[in-house]
Design a binder for these strands. Sequence first.
DNA 1: CTTACTGGATAGTGGCAGTATCTAGTCTAG
DNA 2: CTAGACTAGATACTGCCACTATCCAGTAAG
Lengths: 210, 210
Amino acid sequence: MRISELADTTGVSVATIKYYVREGLLSPGRKLAERLADYDDQHVRRLRLLRVLRDVGAVPVGALKALVDATQDRSASVHDMFGKACDALRTETAVPEVPDEHTRALADQIVAQAGWTKVRPDAPERDRLASIIRVILDSGLPTDPEGAATYLPLVDAIAAYELDQIDDTQDREAMMEQMVLGQVVLGEFLLSLRRLAHEHHSALRFAGRR
Amino acid sequence: MRISELADTTGVSVATIKYYVREGLLSPGRKLAERLADYDDQHVRRLRLLRVLRDVGAVPVGALKALVDATQDRSASVHDMFGKACDALRTETAVPEVPDEHTRALADQIVAQAGWTKVRPDAPERDRLASIIRVILDSGLPTDPEGAATYLPLVDAIAAYELDQIDDTQDREAMMEQMVLGQVVLGEFLLSLRRLAHEHHSALRFAGRR
DNA sequence: CTTACTGGATAGTGGCAGTATCTAGTCTAG
DNA sequence: CTAGACTAGATACTGCCACTATCCAGTAAG
C-alpha cells in the first residue's frame, strides 16, 4: 500500500502521516526502493488508534510516543506495560507539584482502604491523587470525611469490569491497544454518563428554584 | 485592593488578570478614578476558581466564559444554570459530528435505562454520548451488550452523591461554584482513582505474563 | 518521455493562552 | 511639590503544539 492509499483509507493526510513517522508514533513503511515504501494493515490499525486517542481523548503526541515505546519494550511483563500506559495517559496538568506529606499520606490511605495492594508504592499516580486531594481541600469544596468510602467500591467495580473485558488470548500489542482504548474512550464514556446523571439529579433537587 | 495585590494573593500575574478581564471572565474592578480601580474578595474567589478549572481541569478559556455567562443570567432557574454549566464543561473534542440515527437511539436508550428522566431531550450531551458510542463500536473494543447495565447504577450513585454534597442554603453563585468545581475536580479525582484501580486489577490478572 | 507520486529534510502556519509594551492618569514618600 | 512607583486600557508580541507546505531527487505507470 502506498502512502496516499494509507492516507485515503484512514482519513489522515499524507503530511500528518509523515509527521507521525518522524515523531516515532508510526514505523516507516517497508522500504522497497530509494523513494518507495510499502504500508500494511498494521499501519492502518495503528493510525486509527492514534487518531481516536487524539480526537476523543486529546492525548498529546508526546504521550502517544510514550505509549508506543511501552509496547515496544519486549522485556517488560504485560502488567509492567499496562503500568507504563497508565503513566503515559495521566494528563500532566499543572497541579501543585511536590505534594506535601499530609496529602500524600491521605492518598496512600485511600489506596490502602480501597484494597489496591498491587499498586506500585512509587506509582506517579499516587502523587497525582495527592495533588488533587490538595486542590479539593484548598478549594472550599464541601468534603464529607467518608467521601472516599463512597467512591472506592464504585470505582473498583468499574475498573474491575473494564479489565475483565480485555481478551487475554491475544498478543501483547492487541492487549495494549484494548487497555489504552478502554482507558481513554471508556473514560470519556464514563464522564459523559456522569454529566447526564448530574443533569438528572440536579433537576430532582433544584428544578424551579429561583 | 489594587491589582498588584490581587495578583500577589492569587499568584496570577497582573498581565493575566487584565487578559481575563478583557475576555469577560472577571469583572473589572470598581472604578475609583481614571487610572484606579478597586478589587475585592469576590475577585480573589473568582480568580482562584478560574485557575483551578484551568490548571486541574484544563478547561479552555472560551468554556470558562460560557460558565461565567451562565451564572450571570439571573432569569434562569438553578437547574437551568447547572444544565448550561454541564454544556460548557463538555470538552468539545472532535468526535464524529452528526451522530447517525442508530447510535443516537442507543444513547437515548441508555439514558432511559438509567432512569434519567429529567435530562432534556435536546441536551447536547446526548449527542456527545452517541458520538462516543460510535467510536466504541468502530474501534473494535470488545463490548459486552450488557456493558451499560454495569456502568449505569455505579455512575448514578456517584452523581447522586456529588449532587447531595452541594450546600443548597447558599446563593446561586456559590452553588454554581460548587457544581462546577465538583464536576471538574471530582472528575479528575475519579479518573485518578480509576487509573489506580486499573493498575491493581491488571496486576491481579496479568502479573508475570510474558 | 511525461506526468503523477514518493521518502526525507526543512521551514512555515494557525490557534490558544498568555505576556510585553505603550500611553497617560494617580498615589505616596520625602 | 515633585520624583518614582503604580495603574487601566489598548495593542502588539511570544511560546508552544500539532500539524501543513515546500523542496528535492528518485520511481513507476501510461
